[in-house]
């Protein structure tokens, strides 16, 4: 936690290294968002986290009827995720399981709405960084530096011509990279419908449908919200073969934290309370009112822990 002691210094330095926030920088975020919504492309990218890296191929097919996106892990077991207009299907060949989740219908990037972009600027300094060539594309860096230690910073490299995001680095308060995605090869356009079909027929595989639906989790809430994080959705779902699980998601416009609430009654496995981490993801588990509360977020450990510690159950009156 010494990391936080030097936060002030590093934030000051990082903020000084990029230009002051301007409509131009928000314009770049908008351009990235539009490229993600409109382009068809196929490319190979490397996901790197600590000493570990994994290569995947991502292909997006867009036409008038909507879009289909397919992600296939190229290292090890060929795990695969295919996202259609309303569904996300996750194919796990080693366990012969297909996991099905609803896709969030809202495809907008709320942080870019005029009334919300101010909120983003309250918690991040947004500026332009250097230009750099990545996988053959001339890219512009957009740097989002957090103003406190409750969120990570992002360095996003977008193709100057198309706005396509070629590289995304998540960095901590010390400015150290903790996770990154980077295309090593990308071709925009010329994608056919066949290229986004799942490679696994998945016949006779076990299907785990999350059956997520909006819900009100009566009695559950936070004793205090984390600065900048607001509730964006509350729902009930199934997870694996477990009983219904409640999920509440909080977001500051860039990062999100999910709170999962599951009854402890009838659980066979022992709950291990504490903090676990994987790259930029932290998972904090604790028990509240005979339930297991698991908080998952792409935020520093402190944020995940603070939200977890604030979860409370109040008997409805």
């Amino acid at each position: 936690m010494k990391v936080f002691a030097i936060l002030g210094v590093s934030l000051g330095l990082a903020a000084g290294a990029v230009q002051a926030q301007s409509p131009e920088t928000l314009g770049w975020l908008r351009k990235m968002h539009q490229a993600t919504q409109k382009l068809s492309y196929t490319g190979t990218f490397v996901y790197q986290q600590g000493a570990r890296s994994e290569t995947s191929r991502i292909t997006r097919y867009a036409d008038g009827a909507g879009d289909i996106e397919r992600l296939e892990v190229l290292d090890g077991v060929p795990r695969e995720i295919v996202r259609t207009r309303d569904t996300v299907r996750c194919y796990l060949p080693d366990s012969r399981v297909v996991k099905i989740d609803r896709r969030t219908p809202d495809r907008s990037f709320p942080a870019l709405l005029p009334e919300k972009s101010g909120a983003l600027a309250r918690h991040y300094d947004i500026g332009l960084g250097e230009t750099r060539r990545i996988a053959g594309f001339d890219c512009q860096a957009v740097v989002l530096t957090p103003k406190d230690n409750l969120r990570y910073g992002y360095r996003l490299y977008a193709d100057v011509a198309s706005g396509m995001l070629l590289k995304a680095v998540t960095f901590d308060a010390a400015g150290e990279s903790i996770e990154q995605f980077m295309f090593t090869q990308l071709a925009i356009g010329n994608v056919t419908r066949d290229m986004v079909r799942p490679r696994h027929a998945a016949r006779a595989w076990r299907v785990e449908d999350a059956a997520a639906s909006p819900a009100h989790l009566t009695g559950w809430g936070l004793s205090a919200e984390l600065p900048g994080f607001h509730k964006i959705v509350e729902l009930k779902r199934r997870m694996g073969e477990s009983k219904p699980v409640g999920q509440v998601v909080y977001s500051d416009g860039l990062a999100a934290v999910s709170v999962f609430i599951e009854p402890l009654q009838g659980r066979r496995d022992v709950v291990r309370t504490g903090l676990a981490s994987m790259g930029a993801i932290h998972i904090y588990t604790r028990e509240v009112a005979n339930h297991m509360v698991t908080v998952v977020g792409e935020t520093p450990a402190a944020s995940v822990q603070r939200i977890a510690d604030a979860v409370e159950y109040r008997q409805p009156q």
Binding site: I58, I232, S251, E298
Partner: peptide, 12 residues
């Protein structure tokens, strides 16, 4: 699915 990152990074 609820992470705003998907809005500018697709499903990577």
């Amino acid at each position: 699915g609820f992470s705003p990152r998907v809005s500018f990074q697709g499903m990577a």
